[in-house]
Amino acid sequence: MSANLPAQEAAHIAPRPFFRTPVTEAPLIKFTLIAIGLAFIVAMIFLPLAAVFFEAFRRGAEPFFAALVEPDALSAIRLTLFVAAISVPANLAFGLVASWAIAKFEFKGKSFLITLIDLPFSVSPVISGLVYILLFGSYGFIGPWLIAHGYQIVFAVPGIVLATIFVTFPFVARQLIPLMEQQGKGDEEAALSLGATGLQTFFRVTLPNIKWALLYGVLLCNARAMGEFGAVSVVSGHIRGKTNTMPLHVEILYNEYNFVAAFAVASLLAFLALVTLVLKSVLEWRYSGELAASSRH
C-alpha cells in the first residue's frame, strides 16, 4: 500500500493529458452534447428539406419541370408574385411611417402601440382570414353592400392581398423601430438645423442609416407573403387558375395524389426559403451592427 503513495502523488502533480479549465465540459460530454444537438437539427431541419427535393425529383427531372410549366402552376406563380408585389411595398411604406412616428418621438402608450402592431404574430393565420370573411363575406358586416355594388373582396384576389398584408403587417416595422430608437435623433436634428427639409432629412439621413435593417425586414416579409398558407386558404375560395397561390396549388395537387407535382411546386417554395436564409445570413454577418438586436421572425 505504502509503496503506491509516491506514484499517486506524482500522478496528481504531473499535467493531466486532457487538462480542462473549470468553465468547460469534459471532452466526452462536449462531444456527446454536440452530437445530440446536431442530430436534432439534422432530423428536424435538414431531413425535411432534403425530403422535399428528393420527392420532387423522384421520377426524374422531366415530370418536375412539367409540373412547373403547367398552366395552373404558372397562374399560381403569377398570383403569388402579384400578391407579394402589392403586400410587401404596402408593409414597407407602413413600416417606414410607423417607425418614424414611434422611434423619433416620445409619447405615452408607445409600448402599447408596438404591441398592437405585433398582434398579427399572435393570431392564428386561419383567424387572420376569418376576420375578412366576417367583414366582406356575403353574410358579413359590409360584404352584402359591396357585393351588391359589384365589389367582390373575399374568395377573390383582393381578399388574398388583404389577408397577406394582415399576416406580414409587423415584419418591417418591428425591424426598424428598435434600430431607429437605438440610433436616436441627433443626425436628423443636425440635418434640420443645417437647413434640410423634413423629406430631405428622411431620404438623405434616416434612410441610409436604416437601409440594411429595411432590406432585412423586407426579405422576411416577402418570404412570409409568398409562403402564407392558412390565412390565404380561408379567403381564396380555391378557384383553380384564378385564386390559387403557390402554397394553395401545392395543397390541391397533394390532395389529388399528384405527389411529384405537389413536391415540385413545394421545392420551388423551399428554394425561395433557402435563398431568403442565405441573404438573411449574409446581412447578419456583414451588417450585424446596422441591424436591430432582435429578430423574432
Binding site: 409562403g227 401545392v250 405537389a262 423551399a270 426559403a273
Partner: peptide, 16 residues
C-alpha cells in the same frame, strides 16, 4: 439553418 422554420412556407413543411 435554425431559422429555416421562419422562412419555409408552412404547407411545404407539412408536406415534408
Amino acid at each position: 439553418a435554425i431559422d429555416l422554420p421562419f422562412a419555409l412556407p408552412t404547407a411545404v413543411a407539412g408536406l415534408a
